[in-house]
Design a protein around this nucleic acid. Structure first.
Lengths: 201, 201
DNA sequence: ACCCATAGCGGAGCAGTGCTCCGGATAATA
DNA sequence: TATTATCCGGAGCACTGCTCCGCTATGGGT
């Protein structure tokens, strides 16, 4: 949120940048559970240096991925303003699964961060979940989604699909298909033109 | 399948039993990723002894959980014979998720075993997936499930729901609800009496 | 331009993990 | 009882996350 306080010494700032650069590469290759020693080695930096800049793995992941989560939350607003609520929700969940499968283990990191309020990732994840929940509520008000579903439900289902998609090449190829199946369960029809029978109690 | 060859020496058989007993307890407490040293310690046995009896973690899990998987495959046949195909599939997937959430990390072990043909768990998991696939095909023939779904799809979705249910107490409480949402996406209606519009091409 | 307080560095070290290897104990057999 | 093949158990290696602290070197003050 606020401007990140730059290090007071030039070498500190330089090392911080190197660590982030190395972390990006290593997380790309090995996922969110990559060895932090690998990150330090790759950055040409001691392990202690890494841990002072980022006291926990989540702190490192936060600065690596937090921006992406914020983008995704912002994208929810754009989608809500741009089109019909059901299409917005569908598109957003597609984006979500796309991002969540970008790195190995990211779905797990997301759900863990949501469970742990002290995690630096917690805030970003919560904001993202809330953004999705707003899209969901819009779609529900428009009668496009069954009412017995809430924000945690869709977040969980999206994370679940992302997780299983990352478990094997075979399931990775089906990510969109699996997501479509799940979305249909929420009464989001494949063809949005079909009005669908609404039964408000 | 075949009768497990009993150890040639009495102490070997005794140690094997102790290891399995300890493993059951530790896996109950810590999940499928429990420390094997813990298992050995708890069994009052050296680490080498454990590794000779069960060369890999999967070998240990196989004898611990394999029977349960076989039971689940058999249950598919019972359900198929006992009731309508859609109810059978629904009931079986409920049983599946119940078992898959019994131990922490079990969903992951399942999907990993399916990816690794050399895993001792591979056969059991494959048989179980096939059993589910048969139930699915029956339900599809009866027009209860959309045709663009296959065995891997339902297995993946069931594993995904199981996984996310194991990620937090909040999602655990929703396991059945999440599964119901997914099943509805397969065109399994909540009330099986409703015939549902079938559109065979 | 120099000095030195101190922010910052980096790796040794601890406790844990999976897994291997082999000298020694021991059960089954003759 | 004596032999021998079977089996045991933990030392040891390479890795992990994380902490701690002696040393380096930066940059503001003189």
């Amino acid at each position: 949120m606020a401007t990140p306080p730059r290090a007071r010494r030039a070498d500190a700032q330089r090392n911080r940048d190197r660590i982030l650069e190395a972390a990006r590469a290593v997380v790309d290759e090995q996922g969110t559970q990559a060895s932090l020693r690998d990150v330090a080695r790759r950055a040409g930096v001691g392990l202690g240096t890494l841990y002072r800049h980022f006291p926990t793995r989540d702190a490192l992941l936060e600065t690596l991925l937090g921006r992406g989560f914020d983008d995704l939350a912002a994208r929810a607003d754009d989608l809500a303003a741009a089109g019909p609520p059901d299409e917005a929700l569908r598109a957003w969940l597609r984006d979500f699964t796309l991002r969540a499968t970008a790195h190995h283990g990211l779905s797990a990191s997301l759900t863990e961060a949501l469970n742990d309020e002290s995690s630096p990732l917690h805030a970003s994840c919560l904001a993202m979940r809330r953004a999705g929940a707003r899209l969901l509520e819009d779609a529900q008000r428009a009668g496009h989604v069954r009412p017995d579903v809430d924000g945690l439900d869709i977040f969980s289902l999206a994370a679940a699909v992302s997780w299983v998609s990352g478990q094997s090449p075979a399931t990775a190829a089906r990510r969109d298909h699996l997501l479509a199946l799940v979305l249909d369960g929420l009464s989001l029809t494949e063809a949005p033109e079909t009005p669908g029978r609404e039964d408000p109690a």
